[in-house]
Design a protein around this nucleic acid. Structure first.
Length: 433
RNA sequence: GUGGGCGUAGCUCAGCUGGUAGAGCCCCGGAUUGUGGAUCCGGUCGUCGUGGGUUCGAAUCCCAUCGUCCACCCCA
């Protein structure tokens, strides 16, 4: 016997019934995005490594040690995408989408990061994201937050909290960074090991420290929102006013800094306390400098990405996913003659009733086991066809839910009987797409 | 990359200090030659994650490795 091949750590199969939760989530999010005028952009799963290094930041963990990087056969260094914003910007530059134009785009798909898997964190994970280009004002910031909030509403998901911050312009952020480095350098002996490392790599992240012993020190540190440039402060105030006016609740968190280098001004994160250590289910922010940094014309931009696995876990935990609709009917042929004729009958019913969800019994077995399968399929009724029915051009229609008796239905009446089931029997909550 | 828990039937798990495996669920068949859901009866399923080692003998002890879960780190 040959050895079975292992799956790869942190890279998972999505099986039914979980796949139904994915479909439901994706359909809901897609519907909301499209209703706000966002159009789908389909992006490649890999890019030149350089793209990620230049956008995410050379010294971030993502670029330094988490990317799946390999040489193409011609020697180019390629990487599986660890996130999609960089690809989206690159695609926009490649195709001239940003020349005096505004774009509202969304995407969905797998991302790859070589990390140790844990709850809510996988090496292949899936995001849906929205990006808006060419809008400088806070109105689009608010819109993107509204879009995300409406997705939660559509899903029936409650209890997510919105955390909000502003990092200022890249200049004011830079000045603040200096202040912070000075502050922590003066207290170097009080920093824990992680924070000392962050001081060199990304000092703002010290503010995010989970170590309780750092809490007092962090509390004394300069607060970024007190060091914003005037324009960013105005932008931030206007955004907050729009959120206030629309009733979207948020919590200001001056320590929310985000890990990627390209963010400026508005950053936000939807968080939950129900996913263990991974609290963020959707996060994003403004990245006004990135398009130019990657070789395009200066273009203001903002976006967010949501983690599908994390949201699926929440909506499944809350039983928010509607049960997939079962078949309207399950055909049970009995005997050789019926087994030959039933598939053709099934196909003509499907022609006549495109909405019909019809399961054909396959795989033999006795009457008892066929009926058992019919029942377990969740079908509303069984259509039994044996020699007697063939001889009289009828089928036995047996309701499987409820107490009604089975009846004999002439073949020519079958279509209209099943049409009735399609209309009221089992309207699917799942959108077809 | 660091630390800890766990890998026994398709699933959930039992198997005491070493004597080569068991339950429930599922599935299949029957009680009911053409009628599901309840009940009863019977049945299939394991190289005990993998590879080494110790031993007369390993699911059990040791080492390695892979996978999984949780936390750190990082982040969606």
């Amino acid at each position: 016997m040959s050895q079975s091949v292992n799956s790869i750590r942190g890279i998972n199969d999505i099986l039914p019934p979980e796949s139904a939760a994915w479909q439901w989530l994706e359909a809901a999010a897609r519907g909301v995005l499209q209703s706000y005028g966002y159009a789908e952009i389909r992006l490649p799963i890999m890019e030149r490594t350089e793209l990620f290094a230049r956008s995410i930041g050379e010294v971030t963990d993502i670029v330094e040690k988490e990317m799946y990087t390999f040489d193409d056969r011609n020697g180019d260094s390629l990487s599986l995408r660890p996130e999609a914003t960089a690809s989206c910007v690159r695609a926009g530059i490649t195709h001239g989408l940003f020349h005096n134009q505004q774009q509202r785009l969304w995407y969905a798909g797998p991302m790859f990061r070589y990390e140790r898997p844990q709850k809510g964190r996988y090496r292949q994970f899936h995001q849906m994201g929205a990006e808006a280009f060419g809008f400088a004002g806070p109105d689009i910031d608010a819109e993107l937050i509204f879009v995300s909030a409406r997705i939660w509403k559509q899903l029936g998901l409650k209890g997510l909290e919105l955390e909000l911050n502003s990092l200022g312009s890249s200049e004011s952020r830079g000045r603040y960074r200096e202040l912070l480095v000075t502050f922590f350098n003066d207290r170097y002996q009080d920093l824990d090991e992680d924070s000392r490392r962050r001081l060199l790599q990304n000092p703002l992240r010290i503010l995010d420290s989970k170590n309780p012993e750092m809490a007092n020190l962090v509390a004394e540190a300069p607060v970024i929102t007190e060091h914003l440039d005037d324009e960013s402060a105005e932008h931030f105030a206007a955004l907050r006013a729009m959120l206030d006016a629309s009733g979207v609740e948020y919590k200001l968190n001056p320590r929310l800094v985000r890990g990627l280098d390209y963010y400026n001004r508005t950053v936000f994160e939807w968080v939950t306390d129900r996913l263990g250590a991974q609290s963020a289910v959707c996060s994003g922010g403004r990245y006004d400098g990135l398009v130019e940094q990657l070789g395009g014309r200066p273009t203001p931009a903002i976006g967010w990405a949501l983690g599908i696995e994390r949201l699926v876990e929440l909506i499944r935990g809350d039983s928010l996913v509607p049960a997939p609709a079962g078949p309207h009917a399950y055909i049970v042929p009995l005997g050789e003659a019926a087994e030959k004729r039933a598939p053709a009958l099934a196909e003509s019913l499907r022609d006549q009733l495109p909405e019909l969800r019809l399961h054909m019994h396959c795989g033999g077995g006795g009457m008892r086991s066929r009926m058992k399968r019919a029942d377990r399929s969740g079908a509303l009724c069984a259509l039994i066809i044996g020699d007697d029915e063939l001889a009289s051009s009828t089928v036995v229609l047996k309701p499987l839910r409820g107490q009604r008796d089975q009846e004999i239905v002439a073949l020519e009446e079958l279509q209209s009987r099943l049409a009735g089931l399609c209309n009221d029997g089992g309207a699917s909550k799942l959108k077809t797409y």
